[in-house]
Structure formats: C-alpha cells, structure tokens
C-alpha cells in the first residue's frame, strides 16, 4: 500500500537575482489527454551546473524533461511558462527547431542513426546549413573529444555507429548533441543501459561538459545523482516535492516523502 503524502508539503528552492539561470519553468502542467501527468512544476536551473531529476518510475521526470525542448509537441498538452533567455519558449509562435538547436537532448536508449560515426555528427550540422568541409571535420573532432570518445574512434570514423558498444554509442549521442553547441543539455537516464565502466566515463564527460553547458539529467541512480549534480529535484506522482542542493537532499532531506525515498523505505 502506497503511503499517502501531502502534495502541499513541498520544499522547492528558488534563486536570487544574482544567480544566472539557464532555464526556468513556471506553473508547468502537462496533460496526456485526460491524464494530468505534471502539476505545477516551478523549477529554475542555474547556469553551468548539473541538475538531477530523481523520483520513482512514472513520476513524470521524462514528461517534464521532454517539455523543456518542446519534444512533447504533438504528444501532450503543455501549459505554463518555460523561460529561456527571458523568452517564454512554450508559446506556439516560437520556432521549435531553433529551440532544439539550443537545448539538446540525449535519450535513455543510445539511438545513433544507422550511419557512420562521422555522419551521425555531421547530420544535424548539415541540416542546419553548415557545408564547409573543414569546419565540419573540426566540429566532429571537437565534439568527439568533448564527449571523451575521440581516442577510441578517431581511426574508424567511417565505421557504422551501430558497431560501437552501448557506452560508446551513448557518448556518440552526447557528441552529436554538443556538436550543435547548445546551451543546455537534457539527458534522460543516459546511463541506464550502460555498464559501470561506461557509466563512469559518461559521468566524467558530464562533469567536464558543465564548464560549458548547463545540464539537466534524469537518473534512477541515486549515487549518480550524488556524484554529478549540484542541485537535485525529487518528483513524486507528477509533483515536484523537493528541490534542494544535492548535498542537502541526500544528507538532510526536508520533507517526509523525500526522506522515505532517499532511505529506500518508500510506500
């Protein structure tokens, strides 16, 4: 029997004006038809930090994350405001393609295209009108280095991306995203299909990347959240219950529901 927790009792931090924010949502609601999957999410993401979203399965983490770069368009109804550079990007007039170029996304399952390693990275750049060969080459190398994959694949850029291991494929997907030089990188359980060694590599990559990007990562792995994130948000049944600095979340959770979840005595 699932314990009942009050949705009124929440602990969500806000930031003062001095903190520069990458993104912020206000009163974000998501509906899949009649299913109200996300209630009132007010979260702000500081620049150049890693924010982790944690919570049980079905709590709405992916739903929330996918709203941030409008990947829920055509799938769900999203209301509320999503602030990015002082623009509400949830407005229908906003160019979604432009948004996704600035807010990249990496999925749970490594999903490289059935193309060569090079083509995987060049694809989106070309789609955006970048044609200069030398520049494309340069971006390929830069992004692969950024994703800590360069040394492993530099001699086989023309091999099919599907011949890579799962961990390599996921780092290729990260490389593919950062080749677009986004501001914000959204990652939905990027390590759930990976072995511990690949996971460590991806985590190291993320820690390196936060110098340049703001990162929001969904994870089921509490240790991972503790290892990489600075802020941590806990989702429960479509509500954001607690949003605190990661240290606080894990050592001194503010409300009963988070305490139980962290302690593993949930429900």
């Amino acid at each position: 029997m699932l314990k009942q927790y009050s949705f009124e009792e929440t602990a969500v931090q806000t930031f003062d004006d001095k903190t520069s924010l990458a993104m912020k949502t206000e009163n974000l609601q998501v509906f899949y038809g009649a299913n109200h999957a996300m209630h009132d999410a007010d979260l702000a993401f500081p620049k150049n930090q890693i924010t982790a979203l944690i919570g049980a399965s079905g709590s709405g983490k992916s739903t929330y994350l996918r709203s941030l770069n409008r990947m829920n368009d055509g799938i769900a109804t999203v209301t509320g405001k999503i602030w990015y550079h002082n623009v509400d990007i949830n407005e229908p007039t906003v160019n979604i393609y432009e948004i996704r170029r600035h807010i990249g996304m990496v999925f749970q399952r490594p999903n490289p295209f059935a193309k060569s390693i090079r083509e995987n990275i060049v694809y989106a750049l070309r789609a955006n009108g970048l044609k200069n060969k030398a520049e494309l080459e340069e971006r390929v190398e830069k992004s692969l280095r950024g994703a800590a994959l360069w040394d492993e694949v530099k001699d086989s850029l023309d091999k099919s991306a599907l011949s890579l291991s799962g961990g390599q494929q996921q780092r290729l997907c990260i490389a593919r995203s950062i080749a677009m030089e986004p501001d914000v990188l959204l990652l939905d359980e990027p390590c759930s299909a990976l072995d511990p060694i690949s996971t460590v590599k991806v985590e190291e990559t993320l820690l390196e990347l936060q110098k340049k990007y703001s990162i929001i990562i969904v994870t089921h792995n509490m240790q991972q959240a503790a290892r990489v994130s600075s802020q941590c948000a806990f989702f429960h049944l479509g509500h954001v219950m607690e949003y605190t600095p990661t240290g606080t979340m894990f050592s001194n959770p503010q409300i009963p529901v988070t305490q139980d979840y962290i302690a593993g005595s949930f429900g």
Binding site: Y97, G104, A124, N128
Partner: peptide, 8 residues
C-alpha cells in the same frame, strides 16, 4: 526522435 531533438 533523435533527429527532431537535434533541431532537424
């Protein structure tokens, strides 16, 4: 999804 998420 991957393609759309890249802004294509």
């Amino acid at each position: 999804e991957a393609s759309l998420a890249l802004g294509a």
